[in-house]
């Protein structure tokens, strides 16, 4: 069967249509965050006119003693901290599961893999009950500590370590008198660098987007991550109409750091995601 030829312009047309689908809402958000007093229906929807982004930004950052900046800082704290430490721990565990033969290895791996299939939201309620018992609910730690655990990272770490760290190299290091832990930090971490970046990025996005845990755990507004903060503003818009402008400009500001992070780290995404689906 000789294939029917798809014209190049048809393919490009499809790509262009989807580009519009993905970008239009973001562009609208940018324009809307510059509308005066949150009057989103005034003026043109997709072109800037009477653009007041600067005023809206300063309103946003000054509202309620700068609570929005506080939320941003919280999000960064929860996310960067948990993702950095969580990645190292998951990577180490995955590495050990790939490179050492020991009793209970497969059992541990299977339990962790089962953990991948347990929805994180199912854990939020019992975690809240446990943290309340320990009188630690509604604290930074009640969101930070559970966010450290990333079973999917262990799975990825194991696959990568098996694929990228040769046993011969570790054997050679052993002969040279290097300890196992030292070999890991001097040799294996470097070989597994793309894996670590991928695990980190997955973890980062998961924690940044996590909604159920902080929603259940936190009552104190000053501890909110930015997603929860925006949600709480948005649900008060009917009582406090002035919040509408802040919700929009806040939503826009909250995605800027993520977009920048994505653009600068995108080459890692591709190489990392590919290896994740080898098995």
């Amino acid at each position: 069967m000789t294939g029917f030829k798809v014209p190049r312009y048809a393919a490009m047309l499809v790509m262009a249509v989807f580009t519009l689908y993905f970008l239009t809402p973001l562009w609208w958000l940018f324009i809307a965050s510059g509308k005066q007093d949150g009057q989103v229906t005034e003026g043109h929807a997709l072109l800037p006119d009477n653009f007041a982004l600067g005023t809206n930004l300063s309103d946003l950052f000054r509202y309620n003693d700068g609570v929005f900046l506080r939320w941003l800082a919280n999000s960064v704290g929860y996310t960067v901290g948990a993702a950095l430490l969580g990645t190292l721990l998951a990577g180490m565990c995955g590495y050990a599961l790939a490179k050492y033969v020991f009793r209970g290895r497969e059992l541990i791996f299977n339990i962790v893999l089962g953990g991948v299939l347990v929805p994180a939201t199912a854990l939020a309620l019992p975690l809240f009950l446990m943290f309340s018992k320990a009188e630690l609910a509604n604290t930074f730690w009640s969101v930070f500590l559970p966010s450290l655990v990333n079973p999917f990272g262990v799975y990825l770490g194991r696959i990568y370590a098996a694929a990228s760290v040769p046993d011969e190299l570790l054997e050679a290091a052993r002969i040279d008198g290097s300890g196992e832990v030292r070999s890991f930090f001097t040799i294996s971490v470097r070989l597994m660098a793309p894996a670590f970046v991928t695990i980190f990025l997955f973890h980062f996005v998961a924690v940044w987007n996590n909604f159920m845990l902080p929603l259940i755990m936190l009552g104190n507004e000053r501890l909110f991550p930015v997603t929860l903060g925006l949600y709480s503003w948005n649900s008060q818009v009917n009582q406090h109409p002035e919040l509408r402008a802040l919700v929009l400009v806040g939503a826009f500001v909250s995605i800027v750091p993520m977009v920048i992070a994505f653009l600068s780290l995108q080459r890692f995404w591709r190489s990392g995601l590919g290896a994740g689906s080898i098995k």
């Binding site: 993905f22 973001l26 996005v205 997603t227 909250s254 995605i255 993520m258």
Partner: peptide
């Protein structure tokens, strides 16, 4: 461009 929306949290 297609990947960009993934940077937007579900709430936002």
């Amino acid at each position: 461009v297609y990947f960009l929306p993934y940077a937007v949290p579900g709430v936002v």
